[in-house]
Design a protein around this nucleic acid. Structure first.
Lengths: 215, 215
DNA sequence: CAAAGACGAGAACGATCGTTCTCGCTTGCG
DNA sequence: CGCAAGCGAGAACGATCGTTCTCGTCTTTG
């Protein structure tokens, strides 16, 4: 029951807003941002232009909201994978690449929204470029936490982040999901090598952990 | 001396064409493709619209020519690095990441043209998407040649390619060139691990090649 | 019922897009 | 010199962009 006004309930507004974000995400992701006009978004979302502009004061604002929402989705995917994947930091790190593998298999996969948007708008929209930079930095920071917990040197986190980024663009352009498995295999090698060579012992006596065979 | 007409020499035409491609590359690379109109390209190149359209029948054709030219430049960079870098396949592979390191240091670096263009146009321009896919595939094939020559399993080439792609996007978004060094360190680990475990001997007795210390 | 405010459909606006055309001017040749 | 062809500068074209406005309809409240 609406409180005392004939306005829409805030819950209804939030629902419409979410629907708009979903439609905008789908359109921007599949066709690029410049290629999708507000009219196309109106048709896709079923929300009038008037309401679109009262929900988001400008297209740039809408793009930022889409990126913000994607960031939340990505973080949730990573955290659930880390939480449910396994208990050792090593397997938690590897679980990230399993997330990638499942994502690449979706039939509308077309790469990383943030990378794509950076290429299209990074040179002309500094605010959006900064938002993208922060997102990538926070992902790297999360990897760094897990790497530290695993007892590996910090450089490993950067290497694992590069693998994740490269897997996304490679899978998008090639149109296959092989990149996820290759990235996972590479990550396994890098992690285990880092763990093996980081032991304080004088030499590498290899206590049970073999250098992995890349598949 | 012009042959028998008062038209421009073909050499002059080629020079103008190259100037246009250079100007278009600079504008598209720094601002994105949709954001650069033909008028802006006219101002930047000093070539009239009429001539622009007689050199390139459409903007899409021009974009393809820009990508084609970039592909030649990239291949030259890689081949000279491979040729002059060193003689062992291992160091030739690593030389690729030195190319990246020098590239990332350029002050107008903004990522890989092909990745950026794929994000912006890959969903709506299938011909351009295919061109980008072919370029990346040929780079991977070149890596595969070197990997085979090094005696490592073919999967290593995919891993090294993913590292190169990831380094480019990471460096572009972060705005630093650290990614090149991290990618090179990771590549060193992956190569040496692959070479060590690929020896036909029953176990890894590590004949002189230690697992590298990541830096 | 009456009145008022919110809403959707879509026209309208100025800007800019890719592309083509007009119009003087230059230039090389008989 | 006269003429024809090619050229640059820029106007022009239709389309589409992001954004705003109009107007008729509907809902809700007194």
């Amino acid at each position: 029951m609406p409180p005392t006004t004939r306005n829409r309930t805030t819950a209804q507004t939030e629902q419409i807003r979410e629907n708009v974000l979903i439609a905008a995400d789908r359109l921007y992701y599949s066709r690029g941002i410049h290629a999708v006009g507000m009219d196309a978004l109106r048709d896709e979302s079923g929300v009038s232009l008037k309401r679109l502009y009262q929900l988001f004061p400008s297209k740039e604002n809408l793009v930022e909201a889409v990126l913000h929402r994607r960031r939340g989705i990505w973080n949730s995917l990573v955290e659930t994978a880390v939480a449910t994947g396994s208990d050792t930091p090593r397997d938690q790190l590897l679980a990230v690449y399993d997330v990638l593998a499942r994502w690449f298999d979706e039939d509308d996969f077309r790469g990383c929204v943030f990378i794509n948007t950076f290429g299209e708008l990074g040179g002309t929209a500094p605010h959006i470029a900064m938002l993208i930079r922060e997102h990538k930095a926070s992902f790297q920071a999360r990897l760094a936490e897990l790497v530290t917990k695993a007892g590996a040197p910090a450089a490993l986190a950067h290497q694992l982040a590069i693998l994740a980024e490269g897997a996304q663009t490679t899978a998008a352009i090639a149109g296959t999901n092989d990149a996820a498995h290759h990235a996972r295999a590479a990550a396994t090698t890098l992690i285990d090598t880092a763990l093996a060579t980081n032991r304080p012992a004088t030499s590498h006596h290899n206590d049970g952990v073999d250098p992995p065979v890349t598949t």
